[in-house]
Design a protein around this nucleic acid. Structure first.
Lengths: 222, 222
DNA sequence: ATATAATATGACCTTCTGGTCACATGACCA
DNA sequence: TGGTCATGTGACCAGAAGGTCATATTATAT
């Protein structure tokens, strides 16, 4: 677990929250490389010296932000269960995507900060965050292998490629969410809008059945 | 057309190429915001003063890099024709993607520099490059509308979403190309490798028919 | 009350940034 | 040869960056 120095955890909770707030906003707006410790310090109301007593450097702060995101996501999903235990793989993936978007709504700036750095600055594919990526790809891989066994996913597609497809849509939807959702006054309300939900449905429908005209057809509220 | 000052075009061609080379490498490595004019100047062997006699600022240089990319792409595609004039839309798209990758191989660093800034720094969706984006989406939109008329694309998908799907795959493949292709000694040879070509085929097959198991099945060299 | 340890501070350091400008160099023409 | 104008130069500027540190403040323990 990536953590700041002990001193950071000795200070009052409120002050800690203030610092993380300022840091999250800084990273969300400027990314990792262009983030300024001077601005973080100014916006969180602590002194330069204190900052370096809490953290090694700004990378240290960012690492902790990732830890925070993981913790909050885990907590959010802890009491969430899919509507049906024996859901079809595609329905389950759809549920995961939608629930993920609900989580994003609960703390959009935190999500934006991490996404901006990992996806935007291309660090996602770097060595530093390898384990995070591998963790999520392994979940998807297991999911797809199981789906092929169940006869739900085309066995002629290779698993590695299918994982890439799902990851790509995960990222695309997440990026779309951050671009559109943050424009809204109430992000959560926007996510729950029938129009928003239908857009996701349609997109995942394409992932499921492709663009080519076949017998199947998309229908609202199937 | 976005252009440097006239002085830039008065200097010898070789010197101009040297400057653009240094600039392209700088942007490819550091992006737009973190690119350093000092480094560009040092690596291209001109003085600071000269730089500002050629360009307004580094944004000006980058604009010209985009112009260069467009010109070269246009020139490359000028004498390229699809193998068949009445190609199926999906076959045509596949041809476009593959030919695009061949182009990328001819000047990977130029492509990387632009991609790094537009996609990576999220400027692609900013106002500044709106017209470039609109230009390419309009081509795709026309393509899809035509395909629906021809009965090739599922008429129940909306056009806007289909464009997004194709753009997403365009970007994903391009990103994959830059990540993997630049590792190779001979990028062009790598692109033409049967394995690489088959990977693209499989990916576009999924875009065409989806992940869901249906009657259709992927076959190599159909 | 005193001593000790933990915490907070902002002036200060170096290094780099984008950008300017007075001056040097060289080409061309009279 | 002398004059003019385009081109080239790097020292220099102000501002901001990340990072340090001697000192001031506060809390704790005796």
């Amino acid at each position: 677990m990536l953590m700041p120095k002990q001193t950071f955890f000795n200070i009052p909770t409120e002050k800690r929250a203030q610092i993380m707030d300022a840091a999250i906003n800084e990273f969300a707006e400027f990314g990792l490389e262009n983030a300024s410790t001077n601005r973080i310090v100014a916006n969180s109301g602590i002194s330069k010296g204190s900052f370096y007593q809490y953290f090694e450097d700004k990378q240290d702060v960012f690492d902790y932000i990732i830890t925070l995101l993981n913790e909050e996501k885990l907590a959010f999903f802890a009491d969430k269960r899919p509507p049906d235990n024996n859901l079809d793989t595609f329905d389950y993936y759809r549920w995961m995507i939608k629930t993920g978007m609900e989580f994003n709504s609960t703390n959009p700036h935190l999500v934006q900060a991490v996404s901006r750095v990992l996806v935007g600055e291309g660090l996602y594919y770097g060595k530093k965050f390898e384990k995070y990526r591998e963790q999520s790809t392994q979940v998807l891989q297991a999911m797809i292998e199981e789906a092929i066994k169940r006869g739900e996913v085309d066995p002629s597609v290779d698993v590695e490629l299918a994982v890439m497809v799902m990851e790509t849509w995960n990222n695309a939807i997440s990026t779309y969410f951050l671009k559109e959702g943050l424009k809204q006054d109430d992000t959560m309300a926007w996510v729950r809008l029938p129009e928003t939900q239908e857009k996701i449905d349609k997109l995942l429908y394409i992932m499921e059945y492709g663009l080519r005209k076949t017998e199947s057809e998309f229908v609202t509220n199937p």
